[in-house]
Design a protein around this nucleic acid. Structure first.
Length: 293
DNA sequence: GTGTTTGTTATCAA
DNA sequence: CTTGATAACAAACA
């Protein structure tokens, strides 16, 4: 379940390691979620260099030496990007001990979950693994990308655009459970099920509350809670609940700091009451009925 | 066989 | 046009 902090962790690591690398060969093992087609991807990408890794919400954007083209990677639920350098390959598949790997990436690569493999210059290899095949890889024209980003993506919660005024107006305009609004990527980018539940707990607001009925203090607290939890989660390199791992196959450490997500039946860390789990807008939703109003 | 898991989109209603 | 509600889909697992 990679959300903003998980994708940001990967983006930062890629930016430190792969700027200037050139695509030498692209191997597509599973065609399903590669667009516009595997052959197009293979042909167009080879020879291009990586300029920079960007992120918008949960979407990873690779800027290429062909300014008109961008490589998009969405991890959806179970996608992983694993990076190997040459000496790691020579050392026997990977450089990390087995216990730092999850099942999906354990052992040598490519494995049965590898959907696309990028061979880069200097022997570097980037693997896109995706157990459930929900994620995608797309080569897209810059103009088209820009129009999609404008329409389908709300402001980044950590940018200036996500101001109190903006947030107040957004909540006022909508009459839906606050959780539904926070999950809506065209309203705010990057939040998913985990960080929405965590933010609402920190802000002491029940996920079922209708957005336009929150009072001023609650709106203010919620905005700060969202920013706080995202910044902290990035610092801890994301949350691993099931499949997320970083470039080296390592789990995210924020899992140890979750307050409500995945804690159904356990005691609230603030008040000791039992954490509840309900289904809201089709999603598992965790909250404390004593701390949240 | 059944119910769950989540990010996203399609579809229909108002 | 906007907004809301809900189902569907991807694939796997307990």
């Amino acid at each position: 379940m990679p959300e903003l902090p998980e994708v940001e962790t990967i983006r930062q690591d890629l930016n430190e390691r792969l700027i200037g690398y050139q695509f030498k060969k692209v191997i597509v093992y599973d065609f399903r979620n590669v667009a516009p087609s595997a052959s197009f991807l293979t042909k167009k990408l080879v020879g291009l260099k990586i300029i920079k890794f960007d992120r918008r919400g949960k979407l990873l954007i690779i800027r290429l030496s062909d300014k008109n083209l961008n490589l998009l990677i969405h991890l959806k639920m179970t996608g992983q990007l694993i990076l190997q350098f040459k000496k790691e390959i020579l050392a026997g598949g990977h450089s990390l001990s087995n216990d730092s790997f999850l099942g999906a990436v354990g052992g040598s690569l490519p494995n049965s979950y590898t959907r696309v493999q990028f061979n880069l210059s200097k022997g570097a290899k980037l693997y896109f693994n995706d157990l459930r095949k929900f994620g995608y890889i797309k080569l897209i024209q810059t103009e088209k990308l820009n129009s999609i980003l404008k329409i389908a993506f709300g402001p980044e919660p950590l940018d200036k655009e996500f101001s109190l005024i903006f947030f107040q107006n957004l909540l006022k305009r909508h009459k839906v459970p606050i959780k539904a609004l926070l999950l809506n990527q065209s309203a705010i980018s990057g939040l998913g099920n985990i960080y929405v539940d965590e933010s609402l707990f920190i802000a002491k607001i029940k996920p079922t509350r209708i957005s336009n009925l929150l009072n001023n203090d609650e709106v203010k607290n919620l905005r700060l809670a969202i920013r706080r939890v995202l910044i902290k989660a990035i610092k801890y390199r994301g949350t691993t609940f099931s499949d997320f791992v970083d470039l080296k196959g390592k789990r995210g450490n924020f899992s140890d700091h979750l307050l409500v997500y995945g804690r159904k039946g356990q005691n609230c860390l603030k008040c000791n009451q039992e954490i509840k789990k309900i289904k809201l807008v089709g999603r598992g939703t965790h909250y404390c009925s004593n701390c949240q109003f």
